[in-house]
Simulated scan of single mutants.
Amino acid sequence: MIQNSELAPYACDPAHSRGRRYPQAAAPTRNAYQRDRDRIVHSTAFRRLVYKTQVFLNHEGDLFRTRLTHSLEVAQLGRSIARTLRLHEDLVEAISLAHDLGHTPFGHAGQDALHRCMQAWGGFEHNLQSLRVVDHLEERYPDYDGLNLTFETREGILKHCSLEHARQLEAQEPGGVGARFLRREQPSLEAQLCNLADEIAYNAHDIDDGVRSGLITLAQVAQVPLFAQFMAQALAEHPQLQAPERQRRLLYEATRRMLSAQVYDVIDATRAALDDAGVASVQEVRAQAAPLVRFSPDMRAQSAALKRFLFQNLYRHPQVVETTGRAQRVVEELFAAYCAHPAQMKPGFAQRALQGDAAARARAVADFIAGMTDRFALREHQRLTGRHWLD
């Protein structure tokens, strides 16, 4: 692990953190970012990720990725790159593990449905919801709500934010995590790295899950230039992988090589960008017009082509569309049922809904639904409507 004395000058240093919303004495054996990571790992929201959809619903197979396994893969990729670039690994890990805490059940389908339900009250953004989880919704400490994480971890969690929501955050916390969206500033390099590691991870594991599911084939993926070159390399070095019974090994080997190539590309391209920019501090990183953690132009183009392939052939596959359509109806019907009868929610959420105005009621309902796992949402839907979700 990189020690603080070995950090690059533009890396975040916990000794110079902007601190927590509620001041606390330093821990005797952990730096501030380690402490953030530990709080995230022990949170209820983190445990729920094991039963939240990545692409395939939780009950569709035991070996498909969930939000939890995805977050672990992002953390692994992020730490590997951070160590080489001399960024703070613990901060990267904390952000990676927390970045999807606000995701709804049923993946992006659930998020889209909840956003439609909340249109009259500011919509729903899963990045903003992740911040709500760590700032307000976790209930673990006697003196405050949330996990009381450092500014740097919270900043990384909020990787996207509308200007409207940024203004609301700024009003609540002047100069806080919403300010950079209003000032058009960049986040820390650690936050930038997590954003790119997220993309690398889901492209790779969605290929794996897509082929495992049978919705796309290895032959189809072999038409994507980024994947094809590494599949060709694997076959050239290991011709035995052409055998039908070894196709799974071929998929793994080609994916492994693709991941490695993307990691090395990010390292090289980022080093070049840092040299060109001449940054020597976190403040100078924030002042840049564009992120410095990046792919090379060629890898960016190839990665974009892979994303288009997955969108067209996996995410828009008729079987996935049918399943996500049903999932969206579950979320919409849950939202309507809880708004009409808030007492059907757990007591804390019910109390918030019953004591507030229409906007507060809707936000309490959204918070409750967003925190659900796939299977709890399905059980609640059946309890409230009397219908199985496939009916």
Rank of each mutant, 00 (worst) to 15 (best):
M1E: 15
I2N: 08
N4C: 13
P9Y: 02
Y22C: 11
P23K: 07
Q24A: 11
A27E: 14
P28G: 06
A32I: 14
Q34K: 06
V41S: 05
H42W: 10
T44E: 13
T44Y: 10
F46G: 06
R48M: 11
V50T: 15
V55R: 15
F56L: 12
L57V: 13
D62W: 14
D62G: 14
F64H: 09
R67F: 13
L68G: 09
S71F: 02
L72P: 08
E73P: 12
R83I: 13
T84F: 01
R86V: 11
L87W: 02
E89Y: 08
A98I: 06
L101S: 01
G102V: 06
G110Y: 11
G110D: 06
A113E: 02
A113W: 03
A113P: 04
R116P: 05
A120R: 12
F124R: 09
L128I: 06
S130V: 01
L137V: 06
E139I: 10
R140L: 12
R140G: 12
Y144N: 08
D145F: 09
G156S: 03
L158E: 00
S162Q: 03
L163V: 02
Q168N: 11
G178N: 01
G178R: 02
A179L: 02
A179K: 01
F181R: 00
L182G: 01
S188D: 05
Q192A: 03
L193I: 00
L196E: 01
N203K: 15
N203F: 15
N203A: 15
H205E: 13
R212M: 11
L218T: 10
A222N: 12
M231P: 10
A234H: 08
A234S: 14
A234I: 05
H238W: 11
P239Q: 03
A243I: 14
R246M: 11
Q247T: 06
Q247S: 07
L251A: 04
A254G: 10
R257M: 07
L259H: 12
I267P: 00
A269F: 10
D275L: 12
V279H: 00
A280T: 07
V282L: 05
V285R: 00
A289E: 02
A290E: 01
P291M: 03
L292Q: 01
V293I: 04
P297S: 05
P297A: 04
R300T: 08
S303E: 09
A304F: 09
A305W: 06
K307S: 13
R308N: 10
H317I: 06
P318K: 07
Q319R: 13
V321Y: 03
G325K: 01
G325N: 04
A327P: 09
F335I: 07
C339W: 08
H341F: 12
H341E: 13
Q344E: 14
K346W: 10
F349V: 06
Q351S: 13
L354I: 09
Q355H: 11
Q355P: 03
D357M: 06
D357R: 05
A360W: 09
R361M: 08
R363A: 09
R363Y: 13
A364H: 02
F368D: 03
F368R: 02
I369L: 05
I369G: 08
M372D: 10
T373D: 09
R375I: 07
F376N: 14
A377Y: 03
R379E: 15
R383K: 11
R387P: 12
R387S: 13
H388K: 14
L390Q: 15
D391F: 15
